[in-house]
Amino acid sequence: MAKVRGAIVVDVEKCKGCGLCAVACPSSVIALAKEVNGKGYNYAYMANPEACIGCANCAMVCPDSIISVYKVKLEANA
């Protein structure tokens, strides 16, 4: 069981669907949605939220700086 859990928030309307975050993610959390945003881009979303470790790699490579990363440490016996 992972000791940390993370989550990301993508600003959907600003996402251009380049997919660089999905490649940078070490635990394959991110995928591009089948739906499109107002500009017609397939935006990024958490397809597998349980696996996110909050490493912020996706936010670091995002060219449009639209990803915010949250992270919590889990209790030892949780």
Binding site: G6, G54, I67, Y70, K71, V72
Partner: peptide
């Protein structure tokens, strides 16, 4: 733990 419990101001690590 639900995603909603993680997305809180005090847990923000990168923005």
């Amino acid at each position: 733990m639900d995603v909603k419990d993680i997305i809180k101001e005090e847990n923000l690590v990168y923005s």
